[in-house]
């Protein structure tokens, strides 16, 4: 055995972690190599010094603190962050937890957004069938609202307002009046839980 190989094994030799065959080889080498023998001696001296390392005593309250923290933890409700942490740590329930969260929070949020639309139905006199583009253009320009629909052969203009959006009815009237010889007969503001498509369908009818 060469010195380099023997030295790499000296720690395991000192730790008594070598098989008998390897131990014999090392011992044989150590008997014939003064440098490696000195290295072994130095290493064992260093690790004898480890025995000097002081030990500390746990505080007398240690166990009580742990028990108290466990009790507190059991009283505390599980937070969303902890569910996320758990999902990240455990790959199998990860998808299940993710789906659960989507089901619980994201889907209702999307549904509520889409269903929280408010519609403004305006009965307009003088609307010419298939010639409503100026009304739409004016409404979009003046009120800034893009969701405007007028069903063919209908005198009802429908403005759909998303959640949190408002419209000034005076501006709506001005926009319709400026688009041509039209007269707004009445306004109906309806908060609806139905989807936009349903509102439009109703207008179409």
């Amino acid at each position: 055995m060469k010195c380099l190989k023997a030295r790499r094994k000296l720690i395991a030799y000192l730790d008594n972690e070598l098989g008998q065959q390897e131990r014999d080889k090392i011992e044989k080498h150590l008997n014939s190599c003064a440098v490696c023998s000195k290295e072994l001696n130095d290493l064992s001296r260093v690790f004898e010094a480890f025995c000097l390392h002081e030990e500390i005593e746990p505080s007398p309250y240690f166990r009580n603190i742990v028990k108290q923290k466990i009790e507190e933890q059991e009283k505390k409700p599980v937070s969303l962050i902890e569910i996320f942490r758990f999902a990240i740590k455990k790959p199998l329930p990860k998808i299940a937890v993710l789906l659960l969260l989507i089901g619980l929070f994201i889907v209702p949020a999307i549904i509520s957004k889409s269903s929280a639309a408010t519609k403004v139905l305006i009965n307009v006199e003088g609307i010419k069938p298939n010639f409503c583009d100026p009304i739409k253009a004016n409404l979009r320009k003046i009120t800034g609202i893009k969701e405007v629909s007028i069903a063919p052969n209908s005198s009802t203009v429908c403005i759909t307002l998303k959640e949190g959006k408002h419209v000034n009815l005076g501006e709506v009237e001005r926009a319709i009046r400026n688009a041509g010889p039209y007269l707004c007969k009445d306004f109906n503001v309806v908060s609806s839980s139905r989807k936009k498509s349903k509102i439009e369908k109703e207008v179409n009818e």
Partner: peptide, 30 residues
């Protein structure tokens, strides 16, 4: 508790921190 605290103490080198980490360890065990 004693071997655990001492192992951590030797790793972090600070008694107070060692006890805090040891508390965390036993909570994890539980």
């Amino acid at each position: 508790e004693k071997p655990v605290i001492n192992t951590i103490y030797r790793f972090v080198g600070n008694r107070i921190r060692a006890e805090e980490i040891a508390q965390e360890v036993f909570i994890k065990v539980y």
